[in-house]
Amino acid sequence: YETDHQDYCEVCQQGGEIILCDTCPRAYHLVCLDPELDRAPEGKWSCPHCEKE
């Protein structure tokens, strides 16, 4: 299903190369994640907010 994702990072509120959560509309820079990621994850990815739930 399609979600309207943010076009900015949930953490720093800036645009650029962001990865999109497959569960919610949030988006993140790899370096803004904690722990940060070296590269975009393959397959489905859930953001830290969704992982907690």
Rank of each mutant, 00 (worst) to 15 (best):
I19Q: 13
T23E: 10
S46Y: 13
E53P: 02
D22K: 10
E42V: 10
L33T: 06
T3K: 15
I19W: 05
D22W: 11
C24I: 00
E10R: 12
E2Q: 15
T3D: 07
V31Q: 11
L37Y: 13
D34W: 01
A40P: 08
C24S: 02
L33W: 11
Q14F: 05
G43Y: 05
E51W: 03
G15Y: 11
P41L: 12
E36R: 12
D38K: 02
Q13R: 12
Q6W: 04
L20E: 12
C47N: 00
G43A: 04
G43Q: 12
E10V: 14
H49C: 03
D34F: 05
C50I: 02
C24E: 00
Q6E: 06
R26P: 02
E51C: 08
P41T: 10
P35S: 10
G43I: 04
T23K: 01
R26V: 04
D7F: 04
V11T: 15
G43C: 04
I18M: 14
H5T: 14
C32S: 01
P48L: 07
V31G: 09
R39Y: 11
G43S: 11
I18E: 14
D22H: 03
G16M: 06
E36S: 04
P41S: 10
K44I: 15
P48Y: 03
Q13E: 09
Y1P: 03
A40K: 07
H49R: 08
V11K: 15
P25T: 12
Q6D: 05
E42H: 14
G16L: 09
C50A: 03
D4W: 09
Q6V: 04
I19P: 02
V11L: 14
H5L: 14
D4N: 03
Y8H: 15
P25R: 06
E2H: 14
Q14S: 07
Y28N: 04
L30G: 11
R26W: 02
C50F: 01
H29N: 03
V31E: 06
Y8T: 09
L20M: 12
Q13A: 06
Y1G: 15
H29E: 00
Q13H: 13
K52P: 13
P41H: 04
E17S: 09
T3H: 03
L37E: 01
D34S: 08
G16K: 15
P35T: 11
P41G: 12
E17C: 11
P35Y: 12
L20H: 10
C21Y: 01
Y8G: 14
G15P: 03
R26Q: 15
P48K: 09
I19A: 14
K52H: 04
E17K: 12
E42Q: 09
E42R: 06
G16W: 12
Y1V: 14
A27S: 02
P41E: 09
L20A: 09
E51I: 03
I18N: 06
C21K: 01
E53T: 07
E51V: 06
Y28H: 14
K52R: 12
D7C: 04
Q13G: 07
E36K: 09
E36G: 11
D7Q: 08
A40F: 03
E17R: 08
K52T: 12
C9D: 01
V11D: 14
C32F: 00
T3L: 15
H49I: 15
E36M: 11
Y8S: 11
T23L: 06
A27K: 03
K44P: 05
L20C: 12
H5D: 00
Q6Y: 05
V31I: 05
P41I: 10
V31K: 08
A27V: 12
V11Q: 06
S46F: 09
L20V: 10
C21A: 01
Q14D: 07
A40E: 14
C32A: 00
H29F: 00
R26H: 07
Y1F: 02
P25D: 03
